[in-house]
Design a protein around this nucleic acid. Structure first.
Lengths: 149, 149
DNA sequence: GGAAAACGTGGGAATAAGTGGGAATCGTTG
DNA sequence: CAACGATTCCCACTTATTCCCACGTTTTCC
């Protein structure tokens, strides 16, 4: 169960250090084999390979001719890459994926249960604003009806 | 059942002493395992782990593609961290979480039944003003219709 | 009211983690 | 086939985190 948000910096080569507290878990879960891909909300997704496989299969089963379905498939699958951590526990993010998520020097590495999300600083702050708005309206977001903290 | 608001100071390292009268209860409830996360209203939430788990599972079940639901998930889950009190009964609040709640030196530690909320001084005062406004209007807030103190 | 205990607060030193840069290797292109 | 560029691997540094100890104030008990 991954959780927690950390700020990290991307170096000139596009490398990002995975927080040490998550490294062991990532290696244990999938032998260090990870999948990095893009999310339609303009962030990146990092899955241990074994958690990715069922999701990938589910995506593959979606309709190919409905334009919205096809576009979603293309983003999630078309951008997927097998990656691994280097000796210093870092992840190398290709220029293509950096562009999708508009990543600059400062990025956020966020645990989301089964996987991680990687956000630009601006994008992550935008999510906080969106969440505030969502809970301010009279209509709660789907899944949060009768929700009490 | 936690209740009561206390002012405390955050030291230079971001540590906050949990009021002694709550320590025993926190340790007894969850063996000292606590979860600290962010609330979209710009405060922090502190749960004993056993009280957090059902809430976490509820959040995990919310839809991932609806933007409002996804943003809410990201704030509540993405910011969640397992924490524990140090030898002096203090809680270490990471810079990331301090930023979300705009915490400075003086903070409020507020019991809210199953959990605690942590507020900046300014944020806590803002809540009081909002509550004052809310009950001044002719329309009572949702949940407080036909309410009698 | 005084003494003792407890509580909130602060800081220093050892350790680990994140970051940056250089050199060797591999692949690509002219 | 040689030269260039990009990638990968390795090493080194600086900053942040963690653990420990210590002080002053407040509260409690006798």
């Amino acid at each position: 169960m991954f959780q927690g948000a950390t700020t990290l910096s991307l170096d000139a080569k596009g490398r990002m250090a995975v927080p040490a507290r998550h490294r062991d878990a990532l290696v244990a879960l999938a032998g260090g084999r990870l999948v990095l891909t893009a999310h339609p909300h303009q962030c990146l997704l990092l899955y241990p390979e074994n958690a990715w496989v069922p999701i990938r299969d589910r995506i593959l089963g979606a309709p190919s001719f409905d334009p919205r379905s096809a576009a979603t498939k293309r983003v999630l699958l078309g951008n997927a890459l097998d990656v691994a951590l280097d000796a210093a526990g870092r992840l190398l993010i290709t220029p293509e994926l950096r562009e999708v998520a508009a990543l600059e020097k400062q990025v956020w590495f966020v645990g989301m249960g089964s996987h991680f999300e990687i956000w630009s600083d601006a994008g992550w702050k935008r999510q906080h604003e969106a969440a505030f708005e969502a809970l301010s309206s009279t209509e709660p977001p789907p899944g949060f009806e009768d929700f009490s903290l």
